[in-house]
Design a protein around this nucleic acid. Structure first.
Lengths: 149, 149
DNA sequence: ATCAGTGCAAACTTTTTGCACCGCA
DNA sequence: TGCGGTGCAAAAAGTTTGCACTGAT
């Protein structure tokens, strides 16, 4: 399924008149392996020949062609993950102390209920509901442990 | 009920060894009138004798004593609103184009269902669920109108 | 040869902080 | 009169951009 992913990415880029360069492939690969939204330092760290500007620019391109999604955390910094149609619909558990993010899925029955109700509320207010963001804010294992100390 | 609000704020500040100064009162008043999360420019604009540093510092204090809540938007900038126990539990509809935010409430029955399920999922992952963030992302009336042009 | 992509450094935006001064309990 | 609050200006942190160079078709 990995080659499927890259094939899809390549296609989306080509459709937008863009190339699937080595660096872009590397970014996609890192995001796939991460399995959770990654911050830019994570994408640059230890990777020589990967300046911030390229990371930001390539992520912007990948976002525009629908390959990655940009998520803003509680601290106001950006994290990036593969678009949901390349993975699966999920939500985030965000640690309010260290900002760590875990992926989580919830039962599709409840998912649909949430979606429907929110869309309804949105329509009442003149919004065209195109998506929702359901995050859980808490304290992760690690930060609870160090808080005890 | 307005005096109740200020009395509560004053009490919370006093309990933390802080004063309810005129500027803090002004900030609380503006947030109450806004009825939606406000960005710092909104809190400074047109208000002389209200430098950014004071706004940020006072908002930080008010957040620490549980009077205001800081919300990060899709664009990564902070917005501030009165804490939920001073208003009512609600969610946000965020315009993905202009970043406008509307408040919205959903039926308490569904609210409880969401809360319970998310807490459960969080516990499985070693998080201590202390809250959730349910936002709806869409396009507001104004931006839909200008998109048509 | 052309045009997208890259790398460096500088600019920009939002938020935080150092420091001297002000003012209320 | 002491300590919290204020204001200015500078610094951080994260992100974006200008520009010259590289590389693939």
């Amino acid at each position: 399924m990995t080659s499927d992913l890259h094939a899809t990415v390549e296609e989306r880029l080509r459709d937008a008149g863009q190339r699937y360069t080595l660096k872009r492939r590397e970014l996609v690969e890192v995001l796939r392996r991460a399995g959770r939204p990654s911050a830019t330092p994570d994408l640059v760290r230890g990777r020589r020949g990967m300046p911030q500007s390229s990371v930001y620019r390539n992520l912007a391109v990948l976002e525009q062609v629908g390959v990655v999604r940009r998520v803003i955390t509680e601290e106001g910094i950006a994290r990036y993950e593969l678009a949901e149609d390349l993975t699966t619909h999920h939500h985030h558990l965000v640690c309010r102390v260290c900002g760590a993010v875990e992926d989580v899925t919830i039962p599709s029955r409840l998912e649909r209920t949430i979606e429907r109700t929110l869309a309804e509320a949105a329509a009442d207010l003149g919004f065209e509901g195109v998506g929702h963001r359901v995050d859980l804010i808490g304290t992760c294992r690690t930060c609870r442990a160090s808080a005890t100390a």
